[in-house]
Amino acid sequence: MNAPSSPATLPGSPPFIQLDAVTKRWPNGSVVLDDVDLSVNKGDFISLIGPSGCGKSTLLRLLSGLSPLTSGTITLDGMQPDNAREIMSFIFQDATLLPWRTVLGNVELGLELEHRTTATQRRERANRLIDLVGLAPVASHYPRQLSGGMKMRVSIARALAIRPKILLMDEPFGALDEMTRDFLNEEVLRLRDNDQFTTFFVTHSVAEAVFLSTRIIVLQANPGRIVRDIPVSFPGPRTAALRSAPDFLAQVGEVSAALRAVKTRT
């Protein structure tokens, strides 16, 4: 229950993802992220949690290369963020589906833009992922015909279709009701068993973070800094039943306390 799982890293080899002295300043001079260092092992599920304005979403945008660093370096599997897009998928807060495409068409989008697969391969892989997220019956529907939870599942299927090594999720379930959110949390764990991607997950929900993560990074605001790095592990498998286990509740308590300490400090 102490060190985060690290079987994928051999001693001496560089970590899978490495952030060194990462700083981000807005043009008006305000510091969003200040001198952030972080090493992440392959297969880790990292939740970023903290008060609003702590730069957790900004950190995802820096990792994805959508936003440039002010100073410092980020290395993802040996690459700069700009060159690592092929191994990354971004899941946004809203599902960001193309309304003129069907579910199938949306899931195929990433593969289509990459040009590395034939149309048949694309269709096959998209259909497999649609199956995996349980949307096969609505594969030919348009987004406007889907519920919020279903749209998010399409978004997840689209992100996973390109077989990313790194998955960046920016509060993907924030707008959903609690039941749908719990259900999708379990689904994410199931998908992770299939495909060992490394995940950065921004959330406001402590319970969600504890349920999903191998590590929880607590950030403070003004300027954004890492204040706590809490490893999370449970002896048994993570299933819906875990949510009422004493272990789980204790972890939630610990993270909540850490978060409260941050909020009162700033």
């Binding site: 994805s64 959508l66 998928s89 971004f90 807060q93 193309l98 989008l109």
Partner: peptide, 11 residues
């Protein structure tokens, strides 16, 4: 976000 999605796919 949609523009970013396309950017992430190196479109």
């Amino acid at each position: 976000n949609l523009m970013d999605l396309f950017k992430m796919s190196n479109a």
